[in-house]
């Protein structure tokens, strides 16, 4: 703020894109809270340690191969969590001394988010070649 306070207010512009991104971020927070714990448990803990319900012969690749429900579950959970976590972390970084890099961090954050989501979708399609036909 200048000492003499100039009243040259620019006409406010609704940050519509950012509003949408915030909506996705919130949705991602919801998905991460409700679906990510069970996903981490199944893939990262139950399978390697042979715990219930993966104490049989199944390995967690069945989650992403064959059933539309499994593929959808993995896609929304991973994409939502990635969006939510990166969005939050890049803004936390600006609050602990990297304010100068705000624009760059934001750009890097969205790059990671969208590259990650595109790769995720690509791999899921490769693993399920019949999926587009559904």
């Amino acid at each position: 703020m200048a000492a003499g306070v100039e009243m040259r207010e620019e006409a406010p512009r609704v940050a519509r894109l950012h509003a949408i991104l915030w909506g996705i971020f919130s949705l991602g927070g919801m998905l991460a809270a409700f679906l990510l714990p069970v996903m981490i448990y199944l893939t990262g803990i139950a399978y390697p340690l042979g715990l219930w319900p993966l104490n049989g012969s199944r390995d967690p690749s069945f989650l992403v191969m064959g059933t539309l429900l499994g593929v959808l579950f993995v896609f929304v959970t991973v994409a939502g969590s990635l969006f939510h976590g990166i969005f939050r972390f890049q803004s936390a970084l600006t609050e602990v001394g990297l304010l100068r890099l705000k624009k760059g961090l934001e750009a890097a954050g969205y790059l990671i988010i969208f590259a990650g989501i595109i790769l995720l979708a690509y791999y899921l399609l490769v693993l399920n070649p019949s999926l587009p036909a559904l």
């Binding site: 991460a32 981490i40 990262g44 969590s81 939510h84 976590g85 939050r88 972390f89 936390a92």
Partner: peptide
């Protein structure tokens, strides 16, 4: 919350 993204 970073770990939410890292796992992904």
């Amino acid at each position: 919350s970073l770990f939410v993204a890292l796992f992904s």
